[in-house]
Computed example of a mutant assay.
Amino acid sequence: MSEHIAEIVPLAKPTIGVRLSSVQPERVEWLWDHRIPLGKITVLDGDPGLGKSLVSIDLAARITRGKRMPDGSPGFEGDVVLMSAEDGLGDTIRPRLELAGANLDRVTSLATLPTNEGQERVAVIPDDLPHIIAVVQETAAVLVIIDPLMAFLSSRINAHRDQDVRRALAPLALAANKYRFAVLIIRHLNKSSTTSNPLYRGGGSIGIGGAARSAMVVAEDPDNRDRRIIAPTKSNLGPRTASLVYRIEADDDTPRIVWDGTSDHGAETLLAQSSVEERSQRTMARDFIREQLADGPAEGKAVEERAAELDIKHSTLWRAKNDLKVISRKSGFSGGWVWELPKNVT
């Protein structure tokens, strides 16, 4: 070790580094006061079906009109760049934006990029960051929504490897700071039931949350299953804010967010409640599968239909199926799938 150190020769005149005395102090700017900082990355976590994308649509609509934010704080007017991999522009995104009151001329979709062969490919991070920056500059956008993050990470990036994730998001964070736009990353929760710590519940590496300066999580309101709560989980640049409540209402089959005040529930208690319920539902699903297969193999489709009648979620049923190591096999050449318990399961 000492031999290698001895070989290092310092540059005669350093060409890098910044003296802090030359840096001008700046105040933190907020796109949404104490929730979404301008020039930084913010993460919004939550399970599927709770309205994370709808929340981002609601915020985008407000920003295109300069309307007040959901908590009544002053709005911030500007353009929005929307990178959405899960919803169609014509049948989903535009109707939702219109219902939320957006100025559609101020929203630009950037989910795909043209190829040399005249086809379309998914834009990826960090490879296509120059394209994202170009659109931000052209539209003077103040918000870039990435929904969900995992769909836009380059295939070279291991989303569960901290070093990969930080190297992918660092250029995005630098660009956001330089060109003064906020980044809102949408992310699904992982299925861990061993912790209710919100910083460890987001999908992928913890480096994703580490790159963010602010983070929030969406969960069901334990006091009212028709409501959702969005709670802060991380706030590096300001004080923790109150949890907000919203409902999802539909107008001619198009859903929208209706904000409904504040809640005393914090992220930790919301996720702890979610973990307890998931474990309970999974136990019930395992018992249900054992009962259905107790007399021998059964058609998988029939089991799924009975589970649906009992309000057992499809995802919970399949996780319970995996827990029990249920054997799935084809019934004949053109038959359906048959489920069967392994011999050591009773």
Rank of each mutant, 00 (worst) to 15 (best):
L169P: 12
L169I: 10
L169C: 09
L169N: 10
L172D: 03
L174M: 13
A175S: 15
A175V: 10
N177C: 03
K178W: 00
K178G: 01
K178Y: 02
Y179K: 09
Y179R: 08
R180A: 15
R180H: 15
R180G: 06
R180F: 04
F181G: 12
F181M: 10
V183T: 09
I185W: 02
I185P: 09
I186T: 11
I186N: 12
R187G: 02
R187V: 01
N190I: 01
K191M: 05
K191H: 05
S192H: 00
S193W: 01
T194R: 03
T195H: 06
S196R: 07
S196P: 05
N197G: 03
P198S: 06
L199W: 04
Y200T: 11
Y200D: 11
G202S: 14
G203E: 09
G203I: 11
G203Q: 10
G203K: 05
G204L: 04
S205R: 12
I206W: 00
I206N: 12
I208T: 14
I208Y: 06
G209C: 02
G210K: 02
A211I: 01
A211S: 15
A212M: 10
S214F: 00
S214W: 01
A215R: 14
A215Q: 14
M216G: 03
M216N: 12
V217C: 14
V217G: 05
A219K: 02
E220M: 04
E220K: 13
D221E: 08
D223N: 14
R225L: 11
D226P: 00
R228H: 13
I230F: 12
A231Y: 09
A231W: 09
A231Q: 11
T233K: 04
T233D: 00
T233P: 02
K234N: 08
K234G: 08
S235Q: 15
L237G: 11
G238W: 04
G238E: 03
P239A: 13
R240Y: 13
R240Q: 09
L244R: 13
V245K: 02
Y246M: 05
E249C: 01
A250V: 02
A250N: 11
D253I: 03
T254W: 04
